[in-house]
Simulated assay, not measured.
Amino acid sequence: MSESLNAELVKDFVYHAHADLEKIKELLEKDPGLLNASWNWGNGDWETALGAAAHMGKRDIALFLLEKGARIDIFAAAMLGKLEIVKAIIEDDPEKIHIGPHTIPLIAHAKAGGEESLQVVRFLETFQR
């Protein structure tokens, strides 16, 4: 049986993943179990550190977390410009285009990625016509 994570540490980790790479490194060093932990901001709005980095367009944080073994999702894939992953998921279930943490749509995640995710933005725009 594994030990539970400290709830406040999980909350801090997800919170800082919105903008602070150095703090993320520090917290992950303190407890590697945080890597795929998620925090419920309320009403079932669960978020991981990778998810936080994805909607903020924090490529450096997202890449660091993925390098450490975080599980990629469609939102991080969109922000990072991983078109083939996004296409595969949307082609399997087109309704995924409408969902997003904090009610942020998938296309906003792609736009947060800037130039590197422009192909994903263009792909997602074809569903909005």
Rank of each mutant, 00 (worst) to 15 (best):
P101V: 15
P32M: 10
D12L: 08
L9I: 01
A53G: 14
D92G: 07
V120R: 04
E47C: 13
L106R: 08
A7N: 06
M79I: 02
H16G: 00
S2R: 02
M79L: 06
E115F: 01
N36E: 05
S4Y: 01
W39C: 06
T103K: 11
S2M: 02
A62L: 09
D31W: 02
A17I: 07
A17Q: 03
I24F: 05
T48C: 12
E84Q: 09
E22C: 05
H18D: 06
F127Q: 05
G44V: 07
H16L: 10
A108I: 01
G42T: 05
S38R: 09
W46F: 13
K111L: 08
L118E: 14
P94I: 15
V86E: 07
V86C: 06
L65V: 11
A49I: 14
L80S: 03
A37E: 03
P105W: 14
A19T: 15
P32K: 15
A70S: 11
D92Y: 07
K25Q: 13
F123Y: 15
G51W: 08
K96Q: 14
G81K: 06
A17H: 00
V14I: 12
R71L: 09
K82F: 03
L34C: 04
M1T: 01
E8T: 00
G42R: 03
I104P: 00
L35G: 04
T48M: 13
R122Y: 05
I107G: 08
N36A: 09
A108H: 05
D92N: 12
N6K: 04
L21M: 07
N40P: 09
T103P: 00
P94G: 11
L50N: 08
S117W: 02
L66S: 06
E26N: 03
K25C: 08
K25T: 11
R122N: 10
G113E: 09
